[in-house]
């Protein structure tokens, strides 16, 4: 009897099925228990680690953005405060200057008034002196011209009538 084409030799089938079941079953068990968990831990672990790192980076970025915002706000606040201080200083100095000026002006005008009063006094006094000089001169002139000594009352009346004209 001619032997059949080897792969179709049914005589050999039972052994092959038996060994297939043994070896493939063994491979499947090894895969399920050890090999696939080991591989997936590596691959999924890496994916998890990468996504974790990305999240951490994102979180740090948000944090640094926040810190930058705080810094900028602090800077703006400081600037405003500096402005306010400078403004207050200027205003104060200005007010002090104005006050000082006013004080000086008022003291000057007081001195001026005093001086004017003194001048008026001196003037009046001088004018009074002028009257007396005129009377004396007039009396002297009259005495020299007429040889008669006029009374002081007459001279005073005559001088005042002339000067009041």
């Amino acid at each position: 009897m001619k032997a059949p084409f080897p792969p179709f030799d049914t005589q050999k089938y039972p052994s092959q099925i038996l060994w297939y079941v043994i070896f493939f079953g063994l491979l499947y068990l090894l895969m399920k228990r050890f090999l696939v968990p080991r591989l997936s831990t590596i691959v999924e672990g890496r994916a998890a680690r990468i996504s974790g790192d990305m999240e951490e980076a994102q979180r740090l970025r948000v944090e640094s953005d926040k810190a930058l915002g705080t810094y900028e706000k602090a800077l703006a606040d400081a600037r405003t405060a500096a402005h306010a201080i400078a403004q207050a200083g200027t205003d104060e100095a200005k007010a002090a200057a104005v006050k000082q000026r006013a004080d000086i002006e008022s003291s000057l005008s007081a001195k001026l008034e005093e001086a004017e009063a003194r001048i008026g006094e001196i003037k009046a006094k001088a004018l009074g002196d002028v009257g007396a000089i005129a009377e004396e001169t007039a009396a002297a002139v009259v005495a020299a011209l007429s040889g008669q000594q006029p009374s002081s009352d007459e001279v005073a009346a005559a001088v005042s009538s002339v000067s009041s004209k």
Binding site: K12, P14, S15, W19, Y20, F23, L26, L30, L35
Partner: peptide, 22 residues
Amino acid sequence: EFHFTNSAFAMGATVAIVTGFL
């Protein structure tokens, strides 16, 4: 009839290679 055959050896070697490699 059950025998250990060359195809069984090939399958066993395959499993050993796959397992060893992984």
